[in-house]
Design a binder for these strands. Structure first.
Lengths: 98, 98
DNA sequence: ATTTTACTTTCCAACTGAGAAAGACAGCGG
DNA sequence: CCGCTGTCTTTCTCAGTTGGAAAGTAAAAT
């Protein structure tokens, strides 16, 4: 028999799920805001974002604003689509019988 | 800052999420049916169920029915509660802004 | 007594995810 | 021009998870 469940492991991990969900509603966020909300260390956030970036799910926008460097993170359309699909899949699993 | 997200890792893992979701709708299921739907090996299902059992989330009912042993698995009320809480938490993350 | 059914447990190999620490790099202050 | 600071990024290391195969267990059928 074939797997019915097709959760995207890149999105499913709790921290990345939250990252994607935040970006899905907010369009884009600063690295530091994301780090504070998700409550992880710089290195951890950086690595999660890199994974999402490598998959083409997010885009990093680096601006030198008012002297200091700021990194903004945004879902790409592919990332948004993957997130929506993942959520649909989650609901399929979880809402069955609700 | 404190973690806002509180997903239960015991439930969040894809296979166990599906196991819990199935049990949440079906009240109880046979080991083999569960194994076929979740599409894992005997050993893997056995281990997942053991983890849920150790946490008090499921109960194992072993019946010798028509000669052959059958193991039924059912959520306990604690497991049902934990699942509902987990789902609520998931929705909190994922549905924000929907 | 041996085989079969139905799991359970052990063994192992692969993969993940986390933080600390070290790096990289741009801009500022002196 | 140089080192310091802020803002990430990368490396190192380690602990925990997951999965399948194989071996183990127990009861029932042959």
């Amino acid at each position: 028999m074939n797997k019915i469940v097709r959760l995207d492991p890149l999105i499913h991990a709790p921290n990345r799920l939250q990252i994607c969900a935040l970006l899905n509603q907010m369009e884009r966020m600063e690295f530091q805001a994301l780090r504070d909300i998700v409550d992880v260390s710089d290195s951890v956030l950086s690595k999660h974002i890199k994974q999402l970036d490598d998959a083409g799910y997010v885009r990093l926008i680096k601006k030198a604003e008012g002297g200091r460097q700021r990194t903004w993170v945004a879902l790409t359309s592919s990332g948004r689509k993957a997130f929506k699909t993942h959520v649909k899949e989650l609901k399929k699993i979880v809402d069955l019988g609700n």
